[in-house]
């Protein structure tokens, strides 16, 4: 007990010791929101000024994500996919026997079943409109994933997981990576560079939406996959 207390105090002191220089350093940083801070004048200014035009999407964030810094986004998509790979490679062998014993209340059950389709439509909306409004593949994908998880809470993880064959699940999860890779390679003939998007607006729009859809579907499937793996419904 005493040792535990000492440990806690030590931890607190350590955290404080870390926090003080961090805060001090942060205070010294150029203030955010000031027009002349380097964070706003340097690259960001360029993005804001001509990003919409060059990046080809009205939502600047999407433009930066899918065009200027597409490689980063590709990397993140891959991190998400790798996270599922990691969980699938590690979890779930021994835990197949246990099932969630407590069924949710009928009200919850009913509400979730009712909400499901709406969530799906909203998710799709967020995905597809990502280049105009806030949102995009990642956010929509999370919504999709949330829908699947909610559904499997009321139905049974196994049932939801069985809705699509195991093989298809994997392809769905990899959609983000594959679509992104394909668009990246298409950049070579279309824009002259890997990860480049063509200058022609229509084509660029199509590719952007394809990217968003890929990321969204892949993200949703990965999130659902994580849940299935943890809930022991992942059939391997």
């Amino acid at each position: 007990m005493n040792r535990r207390r000492a440990g806690r105090i030590l931890t607190a002191v350590l955290i404080a010791a870390l926090a003080v220089p961090l805060m001090y350093g942060m205070v010294q940083l150029p203030a955010p929101g000031h027009a002349d801070a380097p964070a706003h004048t340097n690259v960001s200014a360029g993005y804001i000024e001509r990003g919409a035009e060059l990046g080809g999407s009205e939502n600047l964030v999407t433009g930066v994500l899918l065009n200027f810094r597409a490689l980063d986004t590709f990397g993140e998509v891959l991190v998400i996919f790798t996270a599922w790979l990691a969980v699938a490679a590690v979890a779930g062998t021994a835990s197949n026997a246990e099932r969630d014993p407590v069924p949710p209340s009928p009200v919850v059950d009913y509400v979730i079943r009712l909400l499901g389709p709406f969530i799906a439509i909203f998710a799709l909306f967020v995905i597809v409109n990502g280049h105009v409004l806030p949102g995009g593949g990642f956010q929509g994908g999370v919504l999709l994933g949330a829908m699947l998880i909610l559904l499997s809470l009321v139905m049974d993880a196994e049932t939801v997981a069985r809705a699509v064959s195991a093989r298809s699940w994997i392809w769905l999860r990899a959609t983000g990576v594959l679509v992104f890779a394909m668009v990246a390679v298409m950049g070579l003939p279309l824009a002259g560079y890997l990860f480049g998007l063509p200058d022609e607006p229509g084509l660029r729009q199509v590719l952007t939406v394809a990217l968003e859809l890929g990321i969204g579907i892949g993200g949703g499937a990965v999130l659902a996959g994580l849940f299935f793996a943890i809930a022991g419904a992942d059939r391997s």
Binding site: V61, D100, V102, P134, V142, A146, I149, L226, I230, A231
Partner: peptide, 26 residues
């Protein structure tokens, strides 16, 4: 930063919580 806010809401407040709860129930 609406994009970030959306992501935070969906991932942090939504999915992560559900995952936590599932694990805790086990």
């Amino acid at each position: 930063a609406p994009d970030v806010a959306m992501t935070e809401a969906a991932v942090g407040a939504g999915i992560t919580t559900v995952l936590f709860l599932v694990v805790i129930s086990r």
